[in-house]
């Protein structure tokens, strides 16, 4: 449950709506495959902004990890792999680098949003954007649950290792069953506790909810949004007119 211990320590704390906008732009841009050096540059740029923001929020280590992974994949993709590569190792590399280059930018951005947004802030931002309550609640639960699932899964793996069960005896059904069932058990009970806790705090009551966190768009937010919008427009123009 280490989801949101950061924030407030730094100067630059963006509004959740800005982060959502960033996620939106990055997800749109990564849909389009970058082909020319210029578009590759823009893609890389758009990837490094959330990394930079992660560092500002005091998560330099995970930013470094992401940067390394992305950098290595980019490097391999552009210098080692060509249209004519073949062979098993090359095929693995192509698959791996392809996935990383294709999905990492959006992943990093989503990770940045999830890690640096408090649930309260997120809920209040969604409410300000008039998103239906059901979607907001579910999304908030999803955001909050990824770290929990990871933690629980780690615990299950430890327990399996302690009892000397490595892969479930090589039976694919068992491999999945041994991991999935305990995970479901713990997640369901955590979910039940979570809903009890949330309902006692008035979630789902028929009134407009107020929030203790005040969210406000600052000039920095507008700056970041404008920057991202600009990159997106330039990217799409460069892609479809192929001038650059």
């Amino acid at each position: 449950m280490d989801a949101c211990v950061c924030a407030d320590k730094t100067q630059l704390h963006l509004d959740p709506r800005t982060k959502l906008f960033m996620v939106f732009v990055v997800s749109t841009v990564v849909l389009v495959t970058a082909t020319t050096p210029f578009t590759v540059f823009l893609r890389t740029l758009i990837t490094f902004v959330p990394l930079f923001l992660l560092i500002l929020e005091g998560r330099a280590l995970s930013a470094l990890g992401f940067a390394l992974m992305y950098g290595v994949a980019m490097f391999l993709m552009h210098f080692f792999i060509s249209q004519n590569s073949s062979g098993i190792i090359m095929a693995l590399l192509v698959g791996y680098c392809g996935i990383v280059v294709q999905f990492m930018p959006a992943m990093i951005c989503a990770w940045y949003m999830v890690k640096t947004t408090k649930i309260g802030e997120f809920m209040s931002a969604m409410q300000k954007m008039h998103v239906p309550d059901g979607i907001t609640i579910s999304l908030a639960v999803i955001m909050r649950f990824f770290p929990t699932i990871k933690e629980e899964y780690g615990a299950i793996r430890d327990a399996m290792r302690m009892r000397g069960i490595m892969l479930g005896g090589g039976n694919p059904g068992k491999i999945i069953e041994f991991r999935m069932i305990p995970l479901l058990f713990s997640c369901v009970s955590i979910g039940d506790e979570l809903s009890c806790a949330a309902i006692t705090r008035g979630l789902g009551a028929n009134v407009k909810r107020t929030s203790t966190v005040e969210i406000r768009l600052t000039s920095m937010d507008y700056l970041v949004m404008a920057g991202f919008l600009l990159i997106a427009i330039v990217f799409i123009m460069a892609k479809y007119t192929e001038i650059l």
Binding site: A91, L92, G95, Y96, G98, I99, D133, G134, I137, S138, L139, A140, V141, I142, F145, F146, I149, L183, L184, C187, V188, G191, L194, S195, A198, I199, L203, G204
Partner: peptide
């Protein structure tokens, strides 16, 4: 659907996504 149900929906969506993600990682093999 009430708040409690939306929490359940969120929880299972997260689980389903984890399944999808774990399987998706296999995609780089071939």
């Amino acid at each position: 659907l009430k708040a409690k149900d939306f929490i359940t929906v969120g929880l299972f969506t997260a689980l389903l996504f984890v399944v999808e993600f774990a399987c998706g990682m296999l995609g780089f093999i071939h």
